[in-house]
Each structure stands twice: as structure tokens, then as C-alpha cells.
């Protein structure tokens, strides 16, 4: 072995906060886009739902061909928000928690706040990709959203992201990895089908419609359909704000880093 070279002297110092945040966001995005399951859940599944429901008459939507995509596209976008903010983040965060990654990164200058910030930014970037892909295909299928409606929908999307990211962190910070994996996928499928995401709540029988519309999924689905249709109902915005507050509070009380 060669003579031991001198080690660099201590010279501590954190990188600027935006550099750390950008590094963590890129790191998280690389994990998402290199993981086949994440791509499938966040992009391919909503895409299949969009094409199957809007371009085929496999399911009877009670609408003429041209109007099908107008009904389906907002619901598919709500599904995409749930997939990115809830399913993808719950599984990724739970996996990192089990492996001690949250603990290790919390000891670097990134800290816990930077770690969460990086995850949230990564979700937002992922949602831009989802919006471009899913919105693009919907437009190709004849969807013609108004620019003003798009801006309202973006606001609703951010609110929905806050709700479902908080729910993801609540699960990832308290449950075992296996439980998170099962629950995150079950919730996505269950809420998409009967939680007011793809299927409008008023199609549900009786009092079920009102109950489902109070769920985060129902409120998000209806708010997005409202944004691209007759306007957003305040009850849906209030429901989303309430869930965001409640879930964030519960997460901050219960989250365990290891």
C-alpha cells in the first residue's frame, strides 16, 4: 500500500438551501422515473383509463361519443393526482423509512424539512409530466378545455396534492412497509372506482352520493369536473381544505422517522 495521503482538513458548511432542494428533487425524480411500477401507477394506469373510457364504448357513460372525453378527462386527472401524491409517495417514503434513508438524510444539511420539500417538489414535477401526457392525449381525443378553467383546475390540483401527500405521509410514517404497499394501491383503485374520482358522485345511489362527495377523492373529482364544467362548488373546496388541515395535523403528530 502506498504511503497514506493526507486527508483534507475539516471544512464544514452546508450548500445553499435551493441547491440542496434541487439536488433532493432530482434524486427523488430519478427514483420515480427509473421505477417501472411507479411509471405504471402514475402514468400508464390513468392513460389506460382515459383511452378506454373516452375512446371506446366498453363502458356506457350515457353520453354521445364526442362528449365522453369531457366527462372522463377531469376524473382521470383527479386519478393522476391521487396516484402521484398518495400511492407513489406513500410507497417511496415508507420504503425509505424502512431502510433508514430518512434517518441518514436527516443528519445531513438537507434535514427533515429539506427531505419533505424535495419529495413535494418531485410530486409537482411528476404532475406536470402527467398533465402534459394525459392532457395531450385527451386533447387528441377531442377534449377542448378553456384556458381559464385550466387555471382554476391547477389550483384544485395543488390543493388535492396537499391532501393526498399528507395522507401518504400519515400512512408512511406510522404503518409497516407491507401495509403501506397494500393500502396505497387498494385506496387508489377503490377510490378511483367508487370514491367519486372517475365516476361522478351523483351516479351513486341515495345517501352514498353525499358521503362519497365528502371524501377527499369525491371532493377532488367533483371539484375538477366543476372546474372544467359548471364551476367549482364551494363545498368541495371546503372539504379539501378541511382534509388538508386534518391530515397534516395528524401526520405532524404521529410521523415516525424510523
Amino acid at each position: 500500500m502506498s504511503a497514506p495521503a493526507a486527508a483534507p482538513a475539516p471544512h464544514p458548511g452546508a450548500a445553499p438551501v435551493l441547491d440542496r432542494l434541487r439536488a433532493q428533487t432530482t434524486f427523488e425524480l430519478a427514483s420515480i422515473f427509473r421505477n417501472g411500477e411507479q411509471i405504471m401507477v402514475t402514468i400508464l394506469m390513468p392513460l389506460v383509463a382515459l383511452v378506454a373510457l373516452a375512446a371506446t364504448d366498453v363502458v356506457d357513460l350515457g353520453r354521445a361519443d364526442g362528449a365522453r372525453v369531457d366527462l372522463v378527462a377531469p376524473g382521470v386527472l383527479a386519478m393522476a393526482v391521487m396516484a402521484a401524491a398518495l400511492t407513489s409517495q406513500a410507497i417511496a417514503t415508507s420504503f425509505d423509512r424502512r431502510g433508514g434513508v430518512l434517518r441518514l438524510l436527516a443528519t445531513t444539511p438537507l434535514g427533515r424539512v429539506g427531505l419533505l420539500g424535495g419529495k413535494i417538489c418531485a410530486v409537482l414535477v411528476l404532475q406536470v409530466v402527467q398533465a402534459v401526457v394525459l392532457g395531450g392525449v385527451a386533447i387528441a381525443l377531442g377534449w377542448r378545455p378553456e384556458p381559464g378553467d385550466v387555471i382554476v383546475a391547477l389550483g384544485i390540483g395543488v390543493l388535492g396534492t396537499a391532501v393526498f401527500t399528507a395522507l401518504a405521509m400519515l400512512m408512511a410514517g406510522t404503518l409497516r412497509f407491507e401495509a403501506v404497499l397494500a393500502l396505497a394501491n387498494l385506496l387508489l383503485i377503490g377510490l378511483t372506482l367508487v370514491g367519486g374520482v372517475l365516476v361522478p358522485t351523483d351516479w351513486l345511489p341515495g345517501v352514498g352520493a353525499d358521503i362519497v362527495r365528502l371524501l377527499p377523492s369525491g371532493a377532488l373529482g367533483e371539484a375538477l369536473r366543476g372546474a372544467f364544467g359548471d364551476g367549482v362548488a364551494w363545498r368541495d373546496v371546503v372539504a379539501l381544505l378541511g382534509w388538508a388541515g386534518l391530515l397534516t395535523w395528524a401526520t405532524s403528530r404521529t410521523f415516525r422517522w424510523s
Partner: peptide, 15 residues
């Protein structure tokens, strides 16, 4: 945090 380096027993490296 910037002044302290940490090596955990369970490594904590992203798998």
C-alpha cells in the same frame, strides 16, 4: 448538521 458526519449502524442508504 453541516459540522457533523454520521455513519449509521443500519447504513440508511437508499437501496
Amino acid at each position: 448538521r453541516p459540522r457533523v458526519g454520521v455513519m449509521l449502524q443500519d447504513s440508511g442508504l437508499p437501496a
